[in-house]
């Protein structure tokens, strides 16, 4: 596959994400909205970054661009050594498939489908065999502490458990970066802390880079670094417990 060959150059340097003057404009003519107005942001391998900001600040747009679901209007987005702006829709899909994992606020699990099958889904697109899929999915479920729950469907699981299944689905392919969009938004404080513990472990022990959107300062403190957005620009960028 051409796309794969291209993506082999993704490399594994210390810099994983680099935004240079990223602008995103929605709409045309007088009805334009500038969601991002020249954002510079770089994230290194192994970081745990919390992106914060009020609604409309551009943090969701930033996340969509990070996840290659949306393209910047201007500026460059380098994922490792690859200029994402130059990729086709299919190449971006392959980049997501091989290097990124997604966690959503609403879990977005397939209903009436067992936890195991949900976690196996990304492996299906990687063309993994049935045995490999099963083994790796079981492993991922164990990592998030859901051993023994693999045959339950989302309807039979609590919100916290569903989000853990979603995390297992995101990490099962061994991605370079985990993109979490308000992962604790639908959960109570105790469940939220459990999820944050899981993410922290993945970052510390698994060495996975995590970028997480949240509007809860309680959750942001789990990250090593906090980036605040306001009006489409980075307002502040600081390591937890000190300036960057």
């Amino acid at each position: 596959m051409i796309a794969d060959a291209h993506l082999n150059d993704v490399g594994s340097g210390s810099r994983i994400i680099e935004f240079k003057g990223v602008t995103k404009v929605y709409g045309k003519g007088y009805a334009t909205v500038e969601a991002l107005r020249g954002v510079d942001l770089s994230i290194d391998e192994g970081e745990f970054v919390a992106i914060m900001g009020p609604s409309g600040s551009g943090k969701s747009t930033c996340m969509n661009i990070l996840g290659c679901l949306d393209m910047p209007t201007a500026g460059t987005y380098m994922f490792r050594d690859v200029d994402v702006g130059g990729l086709t829709r299919n190449q971006r899909a392959l980049l997501r498939r091989h290097y990124q994992g997604f966690i959503f606020q609403g879990y977005n699990l397939l209903s009436r489908t067992s936890a195991l099958e949900n976690v196996e889904l990304p492996l299906l697109y990687r063309g993994a065999g049935a045995h490999e899929r099963r083994d790796r999915a079981m492993e991922a479920l164990e990592t998030v502490g859901l051993k023994g729950w693999e045959s339950h469907t989302p309807g039979e699981l609590s919100g916290g458990q569903q989000q853990r299944v979603a995390i297992a689905r995101a990490i099962v392919t061994g991605p370079a970066v985990l993109l979490a969009d308000e992962p604790t938004g639908n959960l109570d404080t105790a469940r939220s802390r459990e999820i944050m513990d899981v993410l922290t472990d993945l970052n510390r022990e698994g060495g996975i880079t995590i970028v997480m959107i949240t509007h809860e300062p309680d959750m942001a403190v789990y990250a090593k670094r906090q980036v605040h957005f306001r009006d489409g620009l980075v307002e502040s960028d600081a390591l937890n417990g000190g300036a960057r």
Binding site: G67, L69, R89, N90, A93, L94, L95, R96, R97, H98, Q100, G101, F102, F104, N108, L110, L121, P122, Y125, R169, A170
Partner: peptide, 16 residues
């Protein structure tokens, strides 16, 4: 639709 969104997000290509 959401399911399709999830599939696309986790790296399904258009033709898949």
């Amino acid at each position: 639709t959401r399911e399709i969104g999830v599939r696309l997000a986790i790296g399904a290509m258009e033709r898949e």
